[in-house]
């Protein structure tokens, strides 16, 4: 028991720089590898639907616009996204990536959806196709795309 055990520590900090940051005016930068918002590189997407199937939040939706042209639309429902980056891991061609934005709030859930329309790329997977994505793309249709 020591009365005022905390006082020296408190006084030591009285004229020190605060540990907090004046947030909306000064910002800290996230570290490297920060999992921000996913985005698509349409040039490399081969529409294997691995991301759609593995997404735990069912936030990725791939729609075939035209079978003949092989045009697809990939929508990322960022209002549902849990930023786990599983799509980045599942993607065999490195088409899914994460940026480092962290101020992603919006006024409407519609503003959060991001969509890409593109022609399916013909790119050989870099690695021999990763195990979870092994079955044929359309063998496992997504349960529901809600």
């Amino acid at each position: 028991m020591r009365i005022g055990a905390f006082i020296p520590e408190l006084l030591r900090h009285l004229f020190k720089k605060p540990a907090t940051v004046d947030y909306p005016f000064k910002k800290l930068s996230p570290p490297e590898g920060f999992r921000g918002t996913p985005y698509l590189h349409p040039e490399t997407c081969i529409v294997c639907r691995a991301c759609e199937r593995d997404c735990p939040a069912e936030a990725i939706e791939i729609v075939e616009l035209s079978a003949a042209e092989k045009r697809f639309r990939l929508t990322i429902h960022n209002d549902r996204c849990i930023h786990c980056a599983q799509c980045v891991d599942s993607c065999p061609t490195d088409a899914m990536r994460m940026d480092d934005k962290y101020e992603i709030a919006a006024f409407s859930r519609w503003d959060l959806k991001a969509a890409w329309e593109y022609v399916r790329a013909v790119v050989k997977p870099k690695a021999p196709a990763p195990a979870p994505a092994a079955p044929a793309p359309s063998a496992n249709p997504p349960s529901d795309n809600g």
């Binding site: 900090h13 009285l14 540990a19």
Partner: peptide, 12 residues
């Protein structure tokens, strides 16, 4: 003063 003692900023 309370905030500065706690290494915070206080009202700014």
């Amino acid at each position: 003063v309370y905030a500065r003692l706690q290494n915070r900023m206080g009202p700014t």
